[in-house]
Design a protein around this nucleic acid. Structure first.
Length: 502
RNA sequence: CGGGGCGUAGCGCAGCUCGGUAGCGCGCGUCGUUCGGGACGACGAGGUCCCGGGUUCAAAUCCCGGCGCCCCGACCA
């Protein structure tokens, strides 16, 4: 290609090839590297001097706030109230529930010196709050008239993980944990289902992330739960992510913490508990579900910035003209917002950078719509709107922006959701026997759906043999009559979803 | 906890084999020209070479001992 002869005397250049160091690693070649680059360069989060703990930066925290607000509204709309419990749990309380302790003990961080005396009882930093909440509610529940108790807390918890990844698995993370107590098993079961459905709605309607709801196997359920349900999302690399869980605790904790109530027949009984949680991990889900080679793609309903305005001009005079038009657009958008409705979240990028730089920067950050406004646009009385998924350009008359932009954002949400469904479908395989199951995961990722016998040994055998393939959850539907387990051939009792998980 | 890799300017790295004045690119600051898909010039600021010890006239470089981080496994939201 190069035809120019270099003089033989010319020294070899020792300088590295010019490259854009701001660029991110290729998603198709190095998914984990891509993920890290995107999280850090889009300024969602970063590492800190604290091992395993991340800092959530303003752009990432704004995303979390929108997710949190949407979920908080649903939690309140279903009758729950927020409250707050202590971060530290005395060892003796924590150790009461045997199965719970066994499940969590390895990853609990302990405060062994209270600052006053080394002889003080060690304190666990909560990995979850069932134990302290149970202890307290023992004092507050006496009668069926005290039930149901429907509470939630937004909090940080700590689990001393061996390997951490930004958002997906950090030693400290933010979440909400709902805790409820009910008079009957049935009522608690309905609660478990109701809150799982809130998570499904949050994932699908707010984050455009399709999920499969279902029950966890005994192997994967919460330590101390009677049963666990979950929402499972498939990432665009084909691995599954547990994005929220809702547990039926039965009487497991209320027995241990001696919570009793007197029912209508004057019989003393233990209430049935539930707990359900969703964490900052879902942000990792949003990133890996929607992102592409250019970076993030933010679901509009939770996007910190929904529309970014890039002004284009030459010289100071051009700048003044364009910026006046930009100001007018922003003012129109605010004025057009119906009372009570959230305004379009618009940001004007007036940095002293070239437009091309800004395009790439905002694409990395995943802003759904970019509004370009330059001399040509102003002359035509339009703005150029470019959407993030396919970079399709639309000329929109300036006076139509207040109605068109919200509509385009809604359309963006719908297409983003459908795109995620299509990606998931591309990995989905219906399997009827072991050959099909093994083939589904042979050198690739998959979401394999098929009949299952319900046996833990079978589940473990698949995990060990097929390289970490696990049952993410079990479908609500029963298997066809007479169906055989796709993994072992024994009679099937369930429909399972197999995948490799994060 | 096993297996790898890496610690040199804010970031990415070269220099280490073979000891001798600490470098490059990007970024950052000021000024000017630019601006419809990652602009350019001039000048400038910025370093306990991860830490501790040893060898040596002399250590980023060689030796010993720590510490930290990242990646891959097993465990987990």
């Amino acid at each position: 290609m190069a035809t120019t002869q270099r003089p033989a005397s010319e020294e070899e250049s020792t300088a590295p090839e010019p490259e854009y160091v701001e660029h991110i690693r290729k998603k198709s070649e190095d998914f984990a590297g891509w993920y890290n680059d995107v999280v850090r360069k889009a300024e969602l989060a970063d590492y800190t001097p604290v091992r395993g703990c991340m800092v959530i930066r303003p752009y990432g925290y704004a995303l979390w706030e929108h997710i949190r607000d949407a979920l908080d509204a649903m939690i309140k709309a279903t009758g729950h109230a927020n409250m707050y419990f202590p971060l530290l749990i005395p060892e003796s309380l924590f150790m009461k529930e045997a199965e719970h302790v066994e499940g969590f003990a390895p990853e609990v961080a302990w405060v062994t010196r209270g600052g006053r005396s080394e002889l003080e009882e060690p304190l666990a930093i909560r990995p979850t709050s069932e134990t302290i909440i149970g202890t307290l509610y023992k004092n507050w529940i006496h009668s069926h008239r005290d039930l149901p108790v429907l509470i939630n807390q937004w909090a940080n918890v700590m689990r001393w993980e061996m390997r951490t990844r930004l958002f997906l698995r950090t030693a400290e993370f933010l979440w909400q944990e709902g805790h409820t107590f009910h008079a009957t098993h049935q009522e608690a079961a309905e609660e478990v289902e109701r809150m799982l459905d809130c998570y499904r709605v949050l994932a699908e309607d707010w984050m455009a992330m399709p999920v499969l709801t279902g029950r966890k196997t005994d192997e994967e359920k919460f330590a101390g739960a009677e049963y666990t349900t979950s929402i499972e999302a498939l990432m665009s690399d084909g691995r599954a992510l547990q994005a929220g869980t809702s547990h039926h605790l039965g009487e497991n904790f209320t027995r241990t913490y001696e919570i009793t109530f007197t029912d209508r027949e004057n019989t003393r009984r233990h209430p049935h508990g539930t707990s359900w949680g969703l964490s900052t991990r879902v942000i990792g889900g949003v990133i890996m579900c929607h992102g592409d080679e250019s970076g993030l793609i933010m679901p509009p309903r939770v996007a910190p910035i929904q529309v970014v305005v890039v002004p284009i001009y030459r010289g100071d005079e051009g700048r003044a003209t364009v910026m006046a038009a930009v100001d007018s657009i922003v003012a129109d958008l605010k004025r057009a917002t119906p009372p009570g409705a959230p305004p379009v979240r618009v940001h004007v990028d007036d940095r002293d950078e070239k437009p091309g730089y800004k395009y790439n920067d905002w694409e990395l950050r995943g802003v759904p719509l970019r509004l370009e406004l330059g001399p040509r646009d102003i002359e035509g009385g339009v703005a150029t709107v470019v959407e993030r998924i396919g970079r399709a350009k639309t000329q929109v008359p300036l006076d139509e922006l207040p109605t068109r932009l919200p509509a385009m954002l809604e359309d963006f949400h719908t297409r983003l959701f459908q795109r995620a469904v299509d990606i998931r479908d591309s990995y989905t395989v219906q399997v009827g026997d072991r050959i099909a199951l093994a083939a589904a995961f042979d050198g690739r990722q998959a979401l394999a759906i098929g009949p299952w016998c319900g046996r833990t040994e079978c589940e473990r055998e698949v995990k060990d043999t097929l390289g970490g393939v696990t049952i993410r959850n079990i479908a609500p539907d029963a298997p066809p009559a007479g169906a055989a387990c796709a993994a072992c051939g024994e009679p099937a009792t369930h429909i399972a979803r197999w995948a490799r998980a994060y």
